[in-house]
Design a protein around this nucleic acid. Structure first.
Length: 798
RNA sequence: GCCGGAGUGGCGAAAUGGCAGACGCACCAGCUUUAGGAGCUGGCGCCCGCAAGGGUGUGGAGGUUCAAGUCCUCUCUCCGGCACCA
């Protein structure tokens, strides 16, 4: 049968035709607001390993929606580019002793070729490459705008350090205490680094989630990551001055038995008494030697801590409590100081019991009144006891009174940390900062952008940026800015590159500005963004932050860089389920990569596209098994055979039949249920084999085109489709009216079947239809009709 | 611990509260054959039965309803995320 479906021939023919017609190249300026459709893939990191069948799934999915939108009359922008800076290229280059640029350019060439095999409708005239100076000059420009508005700043702090990659990492890049890229256990280091102040937009980032059509679990991940909590800041007097304490439970103030500071708290040194000096010094040294992992593991064990020798006065109660230092208190959350209430907080309780501090219950509960076990912690609500003038009142109801009486203020705190963007690596965009001879930072002049990567360096990592070893880079700074001036030698996190690429796709070659504000307003937000869940708290958060920044701040005038309508850049997000093999994500290092090449060779691109979608629901992980592709292939063969036969067959397909099919797949396409779209198409063909007329087949081909573009073109043209390509065909619309209501027929309260009737059908009409369907017994005495829902027939029992 | 999501044949999975298992894979039987790991026809949840047919069935226990995989309550298991965040 194969001679009738020569996929290689068909693909070759139509690929050439598409090329000739420049079908997928879109001028973004032509669309009006209503017809613009932006279908975006999370752009890939071009690794030398190439594409596997897992990568395919997302690109096929986005292509389906790009083509579908086109058939429905949209002016579709469907670009593809490369997130080309980053560690893997650098590491691969080190390993193979090539330059990262050569490695990357080659990988991009290879990727491009492989992406073209997909038969996807990418507009390659819009492509971007983040490692190209034409692109990263604008990444640097972006940094300078953030700097100008106080959103980029350099500061000392304890940072996550990956000893293997020899670079710092952002909080989001540390997963389970390990480096997201290489899995090495992350350690701490004190370094002066550049940060973007994501925390200053935390509330906006949280609120914006309510406006986007994203999967609920992704929104939840971001909400958890931002981690808003409302509490109060109270001031405790100490010998070293007032100490601010953040708490979410001001109602437990009277139960405070200690004040605990983070080891890095600035007042530690001033507070320590001479007798405790040695003990504190030893403890701080011990803390410094611990990794994050060590520190976290104490959660289950005892809490280490040391007494400072000083005391603090608790507001309102005016009691004096000891001041301790413990590493379970984090300097970068809240104020770095915690009021310890062991009776009503699990951690404080562990701490207090380890160090023999008193446990004082101040909220009455069944347990605390009856029991005397200090290990019992009651975190719920209740009536206050031993709480001065507040005794006898309900804890949750006196929070604001206590805050006011203690001269505190209500504050909101976030778990989100600022985004650490410095990297001590070579293959990234140089941070456009120059230091004067005194070491003061200055923005690089915009006319000096792009600040290009020096090429005269050995880029082996060594704990400081390879850029610091470049003689040329040093000379360049002095030449431009004067003797003793030097450039910042760290490079930017690659997530900065990818935080704005979707803006650049509209004007990828504009040498005068990073993006066109008016065009962006017209084309964004992105209508459909497709990518993996792994970016839920990385890329998606960073890109939202940058978009927020650009819509909030502007050049010199009051006008923002971007129209506020783009504050949420991704209107709809779809998370593509990963393809696994033997339960694991495909990767070359695990050796479980399935290449698409032999499958394309044997079954064709269309069959592989279809199978990628048919393996299961698109948002669910799917285990790869090659067996199923046969079924898709057989369907395509049948399709071609049907076309061969259709010239001289009489159709037995009513308009209703086709419309029923059409309505089903329409709603399935809408709901991303592409596995069932394919199932419906199979069902339709199976049912009507031998009886599909050319006319119906033409329409059928259009409905299959988003998924199977090559074969659809072929059968469309064989059936007399009179356009150059299905691309210009209209999406079929139903010609018949639908029978809206499905009415249930019951006899003596017992279900006998359902009938389809018009939405506002009268009882008599429903009864007629039910009788025709054989549901109505002869001896019906009475009928009860709930319009549009159920028809109950009462008949005497035999 | 907190927050999400999911449990349906041998497998991937379908099912606006209305005849569970569509569609496909695998398997079985028969046919065909120019070889088959090709094609065609039929069968295929489980139990009883030669069959017609009957019973039973969507992790478990209750409930709502004429009717529940679907809605409600409780519960078990698995997956994902966050977690010493005050």
């Amino acid at each position: 049968m194969k001679q009738f479906y020569d996929h290689a021939e068909i693909e070759k023919k139509w690929r050439a035709r598409w090329q000739e017609l420049s079908l997928y190249s879109v001028d973004p300026t032509t669309a009006d607001e209503g017809s613009a459709y932006y279908c975006l893939d999370m752009f890939p990191y071009p690794s030398g390993d190439g594409l596997h069948v897992g990568h395919w799934r997302g690109y096929v999915l986005s292509d389906v929606y790009a083509r579908l939108a086109r058939l429905k009359g949209k002016k579709v922008l469907h670009p593809m580019g490369f997130d080309a800076f980053g560690l893997p290229a650098e590491n691969a280059a080190i390993k193979t002793k090539t330059h990262p640029k050569d490695y990357t350019d080659q990988a991009i060439a290879n990727f491009t070729k492989q992406l073209q095999q997909l038969g996807a409708s990418f507009d390659w005239s819009k492509t971007v490459n983040t490692s190209s100076p034409d692109y990263y000059r604008w990444t640097q420009w972006l940094f300078l705008q953030l700097y100008k508005h106080g959103h980029a700043e350099k500061r000392d702090g304890q940072v996550n350090w990956c000893p293997k990659d020899e670079t710092v990492l952002a909080n989001e890049q540390v997963v389970d205490g390990k480096c997201e890229r290489c899995g090495t256990t992350v350690t701490k280091k004190n370094l002066s680094q550049w940060y973007f102040k994501t925390t200053s937009l935390a509330q906006e980032l949280l609120d914006g989630l309510d406006q986007v059509n994203w999967p609920e679990h992704v929104k939840t991940l971001q909400r958890n990551w931002i981690g808003r909590s409302v509490g109060a800041e109270l001031s405790f007097e100490s010998p070293a001055g007032p100490i601010a304490v953040f708490t979410t439970r001001p109602d437990t103030l009277f139960g405070v038995t200690a004040l605990v500071l983070a080891p890095e708290h600035p007042l530690v040194d001033k507070l320590v008494s001479p007798e405790q000096r040695d003990a504190v010094t030893a403890y701080l040294a011990e803390v410094r030697s611990k990794t994050n992992i060590d520190r976290q593991q104490q959660k289950e064990t005892a809490k280490t801590a040391v007494f400072t020798g000083a005391a603090a006065r608790v507001p309102l109660s005016e009691k004096d409590v000891p001041i301790w230092i413990a590493d379970y208190v984090l300097m970068d959350y809240g104020t770095g100081a915690v009021m310890s209430v062991p009776a009503h907080d699990e951690r404080d309780n562990q701490f207090a019991r380890t160090h023999n501090l008193p446990v004082v219950p101040v909220i009455q509960s069944d347990r605390s009144t009856v029991e005397t076990d200090p290990a019992l912690v009651y975190e719920g609500d209740g009536v206050l006891i031993d709480a001065g003038e507040f005794s006898g009142r309900v804890a949750s109801e006196v929070v604001s009174d206590i805050v006011a009486a203690a001269n505190g203020k209500t504050v909101v705190t976030y778990r989100l940390r600022d985004w650490l963007v410095s990297r001590q690596r070579y293959w990234g965009a140089p941070i456009p900062i120059v230091y004067d001879p005194d070491g003061t930072a200055h923005a690089v002049n915009e006319e000096h952008l792009p600040l290009e990567l020096p090429t005269d360096v050995d880029f082996l990592p060594g704990g400081e940026s390879p850029l610091a070893r470049s003689a040329e880079y040093k000379e360049r700074a002095e030449k431009l800015y004067g003797k003793g001036w030097r450039f910042e030698t760290d490079t930017l996190d690659t997530f900065v590159d990818s935080s704005w690429y979707f803006l650049r796709y509209l004007t990828p070659n504009d040498a005068t500005k990073p993006f066109d504000k008016q065009l962006v307003k017209k084309r964004l937000p992105v209508d459909l963004y497709i990518g993996g869940i792994e970016h839920a708290t990385l890329h998606l958060l960073y890109a939202r932050y940058i978009a927020r920044f650009l819509t909030k701040y502007g050049d010199d005038s009051s006008e923002p860089y971007l129209d506020p309508s783009v504050a949420e850049p991704f209107k709809q997000l779809f998370n593509i389920g990963m393809i696994t093999l033997h339960g694991a994500k495909m990767s070359k290092s695990k050796g479980n990569v399935v290449s698409p090449d032999p499958l394309i060779e044997h079954y064709g691109t269309d069959a592989l596209r279809g199978y990628e979608l048919f393996v299961g629901p698109m948002d669910i992980e799917a285990e790869w098994s090659v067996n199923g592709i046969n079924g898709i292939h057989r369907f395509l063969i049948k399709l071609v055979e049907e076309v061969r036969d259709s010239a001289n067959t009489e159709s037995n397909i009513s308009e209703e039949d086709f419309d029923t099919y059409l309505r089903s797949i329409d709603s399935m396409y809408e709901g991303f249920r592409l596995n069932t779209v394919i199932a419906e198409a199979m069902k339709f063909l199976n049912k009507h084999t031998g009886h599909v007329s050319s006319e119906i087949m033409q329409k059928f081909a259009v409905t299959l085109y988003p998924i199977f573009p090559y074969i659809s073109e072929e059968i469309y043209s064989l059936c007399g489709g009179n356009k150059d390509s299905v691309f210009f065909a209209p999406w079929p619309t139903p010609t018949t009216t639908v029978q809206q209501a499905r009415v249930t027929v019951l006899v003596n309260q017992k279900f006998v079947g359902t009938v389809q009737v018009g939405e506002d059908a009268a009882e008599a009409e429903v009864l007629d239809v039910a009788r025709d369907a054989g549901f109505v017994p002869n001896n019906v005495q009475r009928t009860i009709y709930k319009p549009g829902i159920a028809l109950n027939l009462i008949a005497p029992q035999e």
